[in-house]
Write a protein that binds this DNA or RNA. Structure first.
Length: 925
RNA sequence: GCCCCCGUAGCCCAAUCGGUAGAGGCAGGUCCCUUAAAAGGAUCACAGUACGGGUUCGAAUCCCGUCGGGGGCACCA
């Protein structure tokens, strides 16, 4: 094989040349602030067009492994979109920051003793180097990092806003806590126990306010994960009761922790989904997670006590033949019969030892009768009361009325314990199942008999309310958000505790509360299976930091700091707001800038537009974590008057994943994927057959391909073009390095059509393109416009290849300037460096980043003649060319007159002739 | 178990309203260029849309069923 470099023309678009061009233009963009987007006011003030666009990526966590080719898919996708709109004259905000608090840096710190800040900042620098090489058009002035004290100062500030507010259910919004205090002071709102507000001790006042605050401390059963040494939010625990991170067992443990009252927003979080341009899938997941059900609360008397239940089927009340309480239900001790106490205690103990996993896996019904009877309010019947672990304390009231006739779980339990079953809905004809959950007329139900379920529900709720046995209500699955973590690498809470243990918010002037230096970053972790352990956060060992003398208005006193930190969702809850005003020091965001970039625009988006980022791209894995928390914070800040819109993300788009093949040898060990060869449908590594599997890219799978490798071998533009050409943005697809050459060939052909490879001179002529060429050009422009605007980059790329192939074929001696310039401009969003280079070679000063993007000329989009396929009974039999302006009758006549068709029709009269203008003619015989 | 999405050439993917199944790329065949190879150019072939029914003048597209793949939820009353 010859390696004689002289054989490669000096100006061929090789990876080497591409890299030179890319390096040069990246420097040019930086030097010229090409992607700086001006703000209306403040430090980044500039001339702002009214037409703006805010495009955002889900910002990355800078892991030590760096990027693989899968990561930039979304980053390039947003960049193409941003570039397309920037070239069309819009003021485009596109940047990228880092979600940099989190577990891996802390774990790495524990292993190596290196400060997590150092690890994280090193990783950020690696990421920055990698994304710079991709030529992403970011406004680098707007980069933020959640670990920067100037950033988390405002995270803490927002925490204080939430802490200092309460939810007014009448106004359906958050209000400052001061307004609640004045209600208590004035007597407008009654203080518990009938006392006056001023009589109460400070601690009592705070305890009462804590029941209203949107951020509050609570002693409650939380998800304790000994293996991680921290507690977790419900959203971070998998369905089988394990930690999403690390896959350790999670136990319920009662601890005093910070909570966020996200449940106050349940209705709005569901209802406002209707106003968002989001994938239905994500909306469905959020609805499901919030879990709103309509039903009734019903009280059943047990002696002097009442058991209150929640049911979605009040219509089945006549069929309630027993009741079940959750084992932990507080009424159990009060109403259990003395001779049942021992059995009850034994069952409760057994239930508490069951892990979540046991409960999931073993759905065999268990329970124990507690020796009490309740009165069914609708018919006065005495029904037995059980405890059973299929009833959960955490949902509804922790108690149910059991209706075995219409609920399979109750049916199973009733069969096992030999309890009566009464059907109250007539099953449909031929029904052979057990519990019947379908619709049908009510039976055995007194005044409800004959009614359909919906009517029966309404009637029963009316009856309950009239007779004081209950009321209609709405129930949610969503729980309040557990907001404390026993970790070092997170935002400290901006509060201190006095001697009585009352939490006191620190004044804004003391922010940020910075993380102290500690010797040991690790939380104490435990045997993952040991539920009887207590969290011990790293900050509790920073004894000097923990105790602090402050004057908070009533003299110098000693306070204790909070040794927990915020979960790493905190920083990502509001970063879109900081992108808008990254260096503003007086406020977290200037309202004028917020209004401009994120405010509702009803003229453009319709009367219910909530505002928010114009396009937010990221993976679907954050559907109920980040995206729910972020919406919640936005709504609180909106209610408090800090923001103009009540949703953070107007449009959401989930990109697919780039996946990869991995190979294992017969021992099951992964072998390097790039050294595996395919032969006769088998996969061989060093001559040995290996098995192929499809999935993620990862170091341990030995199948990682990095963007750096691709930039070196092909250049960033080729890599970008290839990634965008692999398929639609939202589809997952396998990575195939061997296919990248296709993108490279296209780039080389386009380059060669414009540049003489031997001497670098321009191969562009002033020749006027043919009408045929102009038709194709303008068709391409129109199509590419449409494709870019709708994130169909793969088809945009295909259209450019098609146009370039046409040029190659018809203008071998030189490309007409009109074609060359349009091609370069249309290529620019996907391959910006080479487009800039060609644009300047074509004699243009400066950058094409701000346009012009070509416009399609209507006159070339209309054809003079149309070729109609002629179908006979739905099968194409012939074609005919007709003037584009021909009327339907003329088209029909032309079709029937066509030789082959006339033969087929053979003088007979067709039953029907369908003419679809511009499409085809179908003749039905 | 329940809900949602997806099945188009060997592979990745196109196909506005139901209207000629093919835009583009990879891999493959033939030819040109070349001492040869690479690169390049020209050109060709390949599926009838997972399967079975239905609606329609006409179905990849709409409806029903089956199979296969992916995802979400899961004792939530």
């Amino acid at each position: 094989m010859s390696t004689d470099a002289a054989e490669i023309p000096a100006f061929r678009y090789t990876a080497e040349l591409a890299n030179q061009i890319e390096e040069r233009w990246q420097r040019y963009w930086e030097d010229h602030g090409t992607y700086h987007a001006p703000n209306p006011v403040g430090p980044l003030k500039g001339d702002v067009p009214a037409d703006k666009l805010f495009v955002q990526d889900m910002f990355p966590y800078p892991s030590g492994a760096g990027l693989h080719v899968g990561h930039p898919l979304g980053f390039i996708g947003t960049d193409v979109f941003a570039r397309y709109h920037r070239m069309n004259g819009r003021n485009v905000l596109h940047t990228m920051g880092f979600d940099a608090f989190g577990l891996p840096a802390e774990q790495y710190a524990v292993q190596t003793g290196q400060h997590p800040r150092k690890t994280t900042e090193d990783n950020i620098n690696t990421y920055l180097r990698q994304i710079r090489r991709l030529g992403l058009g970011h406004d680098e002035r707007r980069r933020i990092s959640t670990i920067d004290p100037e950033y988390y100062k405002w995270t803490q500030w927002i925490f204080l806003q939430i802490f200092n507010s309460w939810y007014d259910p009448d106004a359906r919004k958050a209000r400052p806590i001061a307004e609640l205090i004045s209600q208590f002071e004035s007597g407008e709102r009654e203080v518990e126990g009938g006392r006056t507000w001023s009589e109460l001790s400070f601690a009592d006042q705070q305890r009462i306010l804590g029941e209203f605050r949107l951020a509050y401390m609570s002693e409650a059963p939380v998800n304790w994960c000994p293996g991680l040494g921290t507690v977790l939010a419900n959203e971070e625990v998998t369905a089988d009761g394990r930690s999403e991170r690390g896959n350790f067992p999670v136990f319920r443990k009662s601890l005093r922790q910070w909570m966020m009252r996200i449940t106050a927003y349940s209705d709005r979080l569901i209802d406002d989904l209707d106003r968002l341009d989001w994938p239905d899938k994500v909306k469905a997941m959020q609805r499901n997670w919030i879990g709103r059900s309509h039903g009734a609360r019903v009280r059943f008397a047990v002696g002097d006590e009442n058991i209150e239940v929640f049911t979605t089927r009040p219509d089945t009340l006549f069929g309630a033949t027993y009741m079940v309480l959750a084992p932990e239900h507080e009424l159990v001790d009060k109403i259990a019969a003395p001779d049942r106490v021992a059995d009850v205690a034994a069952y409760r103990r057994a239930a508490s030892l069951k892990s979540e996993l046991d409960r999931q896996e073993n759905k065999e019904k268990t329970g124990v009768f507690i020796g009490a009877y309740a009165t069914n309010p609708v018919n006065g019947k005495e029904i037995p009361v059980y405890i059973a672990d299929y009833v959960l304390m955490g949902y509804g009231t922790g108690a149910i009325m059991a209706v075995p006739g219409q609920d399979q779980r109750d049916w199973d339990f009733a069969k096992k314990f030999d309890l009566p079953i009464i059907r109250t809905v007539q099953p449909s004809e031929g029904f052979e199942g057990e519990a019947y959950t379908g619709d049908g007329p009510a039976v055995n139900s007194g005044f409800l008999d004959g009614m359909a379920i919906d009517d029966a529900k309404k009637t029963m709720i009316g009856w309950l309310e009239e007779n004081g046995h209950g009321h209609g209500t709405v129930q949610f699955k969503l729980r309040d958000w557990l907001f404390s973590r026993q970790r070092y690498w997170g935002e400290p809470f901006p509060v201190v505790y006095d001697e009585a243990g009352t939490a006191i918010a620190l004044p804004e002037s003391m922010l940020p509360i910075e993380l102290p230096e500690v010797d040991d970053y690790s939380p104490r972790t435990f045997d993952p299976e040991d539920a009887d352990t207590e969290p011990s956060p790293p900050l509790s060992r920073a004894t000097e930091w923990m105790t602090v003398e402050l004057d908070l208005g009533d003299g110098l006193k000693t306070y204790r700091r909070d040794t927990n930190t915020m979960p790493n969702w905190a920083g990502s809850c509001w970063y879109q707001l900081r992108y808008v005003d990254p260096v503003e020091t007086e406020r977290f965001v200037n309202p004028e800038n917020e209004q401009y970039w994120l405010g509702p625009r009803t003229a453009e988006h319709g009367p219910t537009d909530p505002g928010g980022v114009d396009l937010y791209i990221g993976g679907v894995e954050h559907a109920v974590l980040h995206l729910l928390y972020s919406r919640f914070w936005q709504k609180v800040l909106f209610d408090l008057g800090h923001l103009s819109g009540d949703e953070p993300y107007r449009r959401l788009f989930n990109q697919g994943y780039i996946q990869a093949y991995a190979y294992r040898d017969p021992r099951g060990v992964h072998v390097p994927a790039d050294e595996v060869v395919e032969a006769d449908g088998k996969y061989l590594y060093n001559g040995e057959e290996v098995t192929r599997e499809y999935g993620k890219m990862g170091k341990s799978l030995k199948n990682v391909v990095t963007p750096d490798e691709m930039c070196e071998r092909y250049g960033a533009d080729t890599f970008r073009f290839y990634e965008m050409s692999m398929g639609p943005m939202d589809v997952s697809r396998p990575w195939a390095t061997k296919d990248v050459v296709g993108a490279q060939r296209f780039m080389q052909r386009l380059w060669r059509n414009l540049v003489e490879e031997t001497d670098g001179s321009l191969r562009v002529t002033d020749e006027e393109p043919s009408v045929e060429a102009l038709r194709l050009l303008h068709k391409t422009i129109a199509g590419v416009h449409d494709d870019y605007a709708n994130l169909r980059y793969n088809t945009a790329g295909a259209k450019l290849i098609e146009l370039n192939n046409y040029v190659t074929k018809h203008y071998a001696s030189g490309t007409p300037r009109a074609l060359a310039e349009a091609m370069v401009l249309m290529l620019a969003p996907q391959a910006p460096h080479v487009a800039e280079e060609l644009w300047s070679k074509l004699g243009h000063e400066g950058s094409l980043a701000h346009g012009p993007f070509p416009k399609a000329d209507e006159q070339y989009l209309v054809e003079d003649t149309v070729e109609y396929p002629i179908q006979v009974n739905g099968k194409v039999r012939s074609r005919v060319v007709v003037s584009a302006s021909a009327a339907q009758d003329e088209i029909k006549a032309a079709a029937l007159a066509e030789e082959k068709i006339a033969e087929l029709v053979a003088g007979g009269e067709p039953r029907k002739v369908i003419v679809v203008p511009g499409r085809l003619v179908n003749i039905v015989l």
